[in-house]
Simulated assay, not measured.
Amino acid sequence: MSYEMIGITVLWLFLFGYIIVASIDFGAGFFSLHAKLFGESKKVNGLIQRYLNPVWEVTNVFFVFFFVGIVGFFPDTAYYFGTALLIPGSIALILLAARGAFYAFENYGQDSKLSWLMIYAVSGLLIPAALSTALTISEGGYLIRTSNDHVDLNWVALLLSPFGWAVVLLSIVSVLYISSGFLTFYAARAKDWKAYVLVRKWFLMWGAPMIMVSLFVFLSLRVQNKTHFDSAVFEYGWLFIISFIAFLIAGMLTYLKKAHGIAFLFVMIQMGTAFFGYGLSKLPYLLYPYVRIDHAVTNDNMAVGLIIVFVLGLVLLLPSLALLLKLFVFDKAYVRGRK
């Protein structure tokens, strides 16, 4: 396997880890606001806070690794995406700062005001929506390289793009789907049956929109980038079939109120196979038609050094996260609110 393939594989693993961990966090904020507005806070807020308190500080570590790595491995991405993502990236950073402020007020303040909770909830949906524009732009047709070697973004085309809005909608629905799936498992483990009834209903409710929006993304991708669409369907379609089967298994187990841990494992398999199917079918391009992994990769010595550093980072990060989950999130006494 070439250096660029090893590099993009490691980076894709970091990005997938961020998608799962951050989605649980982002969706939990929305569900907290929903419960407060409908007078159901007492049912779920304790469960959500027990998960977030030990985990929220490490959520963005995965994203930082990916961001640093993608620029380190493939420097051309900084050149092309730098201008294009200036506005959505800035919005995402501001919203991340707002979420950090909420955590501070929540943990150390006198009370939790509705206004802060609304910022926390809305930012959890807007951050993935803003970041998802990178995937839209990477499909080509939005960046224009001028004769003087300057890169411009066609904002009108981006704002009017059906594919772009489909990706934004998928990012929001995915957050709510993943988060409700995890909270269902977490509530069952905590034997918090009031919360369980509510979050299980949310998970089952978001299942159908998840599939419908995913199908819409596929159909709009055919118009946006037929080469990528054909590769996804004819070369890696088996990964998306596995994803759909995993979706059915997760939904059936949850509907039958059985094996919620296995159900959430299938949710991760569902998202992972679809995510890697998307990534593999796009190769060798990172950004159509300008950036290819076999042309934009850094020199061999730098690539080897980055691979070693990021593999070691992955080796350290995953056991650390597993230990954190074991000591707090999945500890029987902690998860049931006894400590």
Results as ranks from 00 to 15, higher is better:
M1I: 08
T9L: 12
L11F: 09
L13P: 03
Y18I: 00
I19E: 13
V21Y: 02
V21R: 03
I24Q: 01
F31Y: 14
S32E: 14
K36Y: 04
L37T: 04
E40K: 15
N45G: 08
Q49D: 11
Q49S: 14
P54N: 05
W56L: 10
E57I: 13
F62P: 01
F63D: 00
F65C: 11
A78D: 09
T83Q: 05
A84W: 09
S90E: 09
L93Y: 07
I94S: 10
L95N: 02
L96G: 04
A97I: 15
A98V: 13
R99S: 01
G100P: 07
Y103M: 14
Y103R: 08
A104M: 05
Q110P: 01
D111G: 02
K113R: 06
L114K: 06
S115L: 12
I119M: 14
I119C: 09
Y120G: 00
V122H: 03
A129W: 06
A134W: 13
T136Y: 00
T136W: 00
S138M: 14
G140W: 02
I144K: 13
N148W: 10
V156K: 12
L158N: 11
V168Q: 04
L169V: 13
L170G: 03
S174D: 08
L176P: 05
F182T: 00
L183G: 04
A188C: 04
R189F: 10
R189E: 15
W193T: 12
K194C: 06
A195G: 15
Y196T: 02
V199E: 05
V199F: 11
R200G: 14
R200F: 11
K201H: 12
P209R: 09
P209M: 11
F216W: 14
S220D: 01
Q224N: 10
Q224L: 00
N225W: 00
T227E: 08
T227W: 09
T227K: 05
H228W: 10
D230K: 03
D230R: 05
V233C: 08
V233A: 13
F234Q: 08
L239N: 07
I241C: 00
F244L: 10
F244I: 07
I245F: 09
T254H: 05
K257G: 12
K258I: 14
K258G: 08
A259P: 06
I262D: 10
M268C: 05
I269V: 15
Q270Y: 06
G272E: 08
G272V: 02
F275R: 02
Y278D: 08
Y278I: 08
G279V: 07
L280Q: 02
Y285D: 07
L287F: 03
P289I: 02
Y290F: 12
R292P: 01
D300E: 12
A303D: 02
L306P: 08
I308F: 06
L312D: 02
L318N: 05
L318H: 05
P319C: 04
L324S: 09
L325A: 09
L327D: 08
V329H: 00
F330K: 03
A333L: 04
V335G: 01
R336M: 05
R338Q: 11
